[in-house]
């Protein structure tokens, strides 16, 4: 039995392998991957801009995307703390806002062809486009297809197959 215990100890320390990731990092990774399933109405700009309102990610976004390309464009990451700072962007990630603020934000970015993403509960049903949530330690997606259509975005069916499609309430 002692040998078995030593064996298991050695097994556990033998190398660096797979990773449990923080919820923030998984969300950041998902945001980078989700774009290939989405077509913006206007994809002519030379950069791909991700705006993060009330950054919950720390330095994760910079570490993952600084100097990288998405859709063959250089990634630009903007961190903002006020709704008024929302400008032209491809993705808007929204964190730590009240329901009232969320309503204001979604109204502000309406018809701007911006992909809105958040992990706020009820985000997709409140007319956000992509909601990330966690159940049993795994990330899951909710997509409000109507909101995406209103923003003139096309979402590939392969994404809709691995996400829950919801309607706005």
């Amino acid at each position: 039995m002692l040998k078995l215990i030593i064996f298991l100890f050695l097994s556990i320390f033998s190398s660096s392998l797979f990773a449990y990731e923080s919820e923030e990092k998984l969300q950041a990774m998902i945001i980078g991957k989700i774009v290939k399933f989405i077509t913006w109405e206007d994809e002519k700009s030379k950069t791909f801009t991700i705006t993060i309102l009330n950054n919950p990610f720390g330095t994760t976004f910079d570490e993952l995307y600084q100097g990288k390309q998405i859709k063959d464009k250089d990634v630009v990451i903007k961190y903002i703390t006020k709704i008024e700072q929302i400008g032209k962007t491809d993705i808007l990630y929204i964190a730590n806002v009240t329901s009232q603020e969320l309503e204001t934000i979604l109204q502000k970015v309406k018809n701007s062809n911006i992909l809105t993403i958040s992990d706020l509960r009820g985000f997709a049903e409140k007319k956000g486009i992509v909601q990330v949530y966690f159940a049993s330690q795994k990330p899951k997606l909710k997509i409000n297809l109507e909101s995406a259509k209103e923003e003139n975005m096309q979402i590939k069916s392969s994404l809709l197959q691995i996400a829950d499609v919801v309607k706005g309430l």
């Binding site: 050695l10 190398s15 990774m29 989700i34 691995i162």
Partner: peptide, 30 residues
């Protein structure tokens, strides 16, 4: 007994950011 852990590790793959979305959705969070 001593080398088996290292054999195990060679069988394992490191996940990185090149994973597909589906792979990421199968990853476990903290």
């Amino acid at each position: 007994l001593l080398i088996t852990p290292f054999l195990i590790s060679t069988l394992c793959a490191q996940v990185d950011l090149d994973d597909d979305l589906e792979d990421i959705l199968n990853m476990e969070s903290e």
